[in-house]
Amino acid sequence: MATLIIPTPLRKYTEDQATFTTDATTVGQAIQELTKRYSNISPQILDANGKIRNFIKIFVGEDDIRGIDGENTPLGSDTVVSIVPAIAGGISNL
C-alpha cells in the first residue's frame, strides 16, 4: 500500500486525516482514489481538466514526479507520496 501524505492546509478536506493509503499502482491513480474518497479535495489539487495544479507539487520519496514519469510514476507497496502545496503565510486573497 502506497501512502499519500496530506499537508495540513488540505487536511480539512480529508476529515483531518494526515495520510491516505491506497493500492493504486501509479501516482495518477492514487490521486484519483484520494479525490474519489474525499471529493472536496479535488478542486484543490486538480484543475478543470483533471491535471495536477501548478501550485501543487507531488513528490515520490524525495523526487518530483515531473522528473520521473509524471502522473504515470509507478508506486511500490511502501512508496511515500507527498503532496506539497505552495503556502504563503498571511495571504489575504479570500
Binding site: P43, F55, K57, A86, A88, I91, S92, N93, L94
Partner: peptide, 25 residues
C-alpha cells in the same frame, strides 16, 4: 521552478482566517 504559478484567489484561506502557530515562524 518549484511553483510556476500561485494558487488562484480563494483557493487557499488567509492567515487571518487560517491562523498560524506562533512558534512555527
Amino acid at each position: 521552478d518549484l511553483y510556476p504559478e500561485p494558487p488562484p484567489p480563494g483557493l487557499v484561506p488567509s492567515c487571518a482566517e487560517g491562523g498560524v502557530l506562533g512558534v512555527l515562524p
